[in-house]
């Protein structure tokens, strides 16, 4: 993009700056639009599974429902409880939303189409997603109310527990890709299975990791069946109970942006990102822009997320912790041993 601006006769430094800001807006604004549409899609999918109609009043097929909701909350009064810590109470949604946006800086949308092509892209994502827990803890604590506080404690313990297994699962990917750069990870998947398929997920050794990562990403984003943080029969509305107006909506936006991010990570890390699924040029696979492939994969994973939410009953907290610490953690540790041993025997055998 920088070159385009230079060709328009701009100073290279300015061109870079303008191109960067355009890139950021090209990520942030469509992301917010996508979040609005994905909330609508989510509601439609649950409705379809439950044999209901879902939102169908605002706009054609109810497509504008999320925008109507957005306008409504925007015009509402922001209530700050008297007993709350005002500063932290308002900072919490800002943290949640900022963190949800920021992680997208290193996601590759196409070959080389990434805002910040850093060496440690995957670590950056881990670092940013580990900040998400602060939005939750702070909102719960600053509300100074019983239910948000309980919910925040539950949510933070849940998030950090699954971050552990996510960290170990990602090491399997890094071992195979031999890089932390997101673009390199995608490129390492070209022709991964005997030169035929473009995905780590088709590797028998990596497939269990892909499944564990999908489940962990459900838990990390507190989606059903792991949505104990807002188990409404016990905790009212979770850590956002005291919030209203746009600061409430920011939690929603942040949550769905994180869900989208997790879908994207599933697609990028295990299922080939912007690559077409097969490495054969029978149909002109490679002529379809990579962005389309990536978006198709993201939407597929989002559908899986909604599907799971509509069908699977909620876990109990002890079952959730057991799954994280006693199932995923040992298995991912064993898998690190298996994968690295296999690579030592085959790829680095010389």
């Amino acid at each position: 993009m920088t070159e385009t601006f230079i060709s328009w006769g701009m100073d290279p430094n300015w061109a870079w700056g303008v191109a960067t800001i355009c890139g950021i807006l090209l990520i942030a604004l469509p992301l917010m639009l996508a979040v609005a549409m994905i909330i609508y899609a989510d509601r439609k999918i649950w409705a379809a599974i439950a044999l209901r109609r879902g939102p169908n009043v605002v706009g054609p097929f109810g497509l504008l429902q999320s925008f109507a909701d957005g306008l409504k909350v925007f015009l509402q009064e922001t209530i700050i409880p008297t007993s709350a810590n005002r500063g932290l109470f308002l900072i919490a949604p800002i943290i949640t939303f900022t963190v949800a946006l920021l992680a997208w800086a290193v996601i590759p949308f196409n070959s080389g189409a990434v805002l910040a092509d850093i060496n440690v892209g995957l670590l950056y994502i881990l670092a940013i997603s580990s900040l998400g827990v602060y939005g939750v803890i702070l909102s719960g604590w600053a509300s100074n109310s019983k239910y948000p506080f309980f919910s925040a404690m539950r949510a933070s313990a849940q998030m950090i527990s699954y971050e552990v297994s996510i960290g170990f699962i990602l090491i399997g990917i890094v071992l195979y890709a031999d890089s932390f750069n997101m673009n390199e990870i995608v490129k390492a998947q070209i022709g991964h299975g005997f030169g035929l398929v473009n995905a780590f997920g088709f590797n028998l050794l990596l497939f269990p990791l892909a499944v564990m990562f999908l489940i962990s990403s459900l838990a990390e984003t507190a989606r059903a069946p792991f949505d104990l943080t807002e188990a409404e029969s016990e905790l009212v509305a979770g850590y956002q109970t005291e919030y209203s107006s746009m600061s409430f909506a920011l939690f929603w936006l942040g949550e769905y942006a994180n869900v989208l991010l997790m879908c994207t990570l599933n697609a990028v890390l295990f299922w080939g990102g912007w690559l077409p699924p097969l490495n054969i040029d029978l149909i002109p696979w490679f002529d379809i822009p990579g962005v389309i492939w990536l978006f198709a994969k993201i939407l597929f994973f989002f559908f899986v997320f909604s599907w799971v939410k509509a069908t699977v009953p909620r876990y109990r907290y002890d079952q959730l912790m057991r799954l994280g610490w006693k199932v995923f953690l040992p298995i991912s540790l064993i898998w690190i041993f298996l994968i690295s041993g296999w690579l030592m025997l085959t790829r680095y055998a010389a």
Partner: peptide
């Protein structure tokens, strides 16, 4: 540098 700019924009936006 884009990340830093992104941070500023994201904080401003939220």
């Amino acid at each position: 540098l884009p990340i830093l700019i992104f941070l500023v924009i994201a904080v401003g936006l939220s």
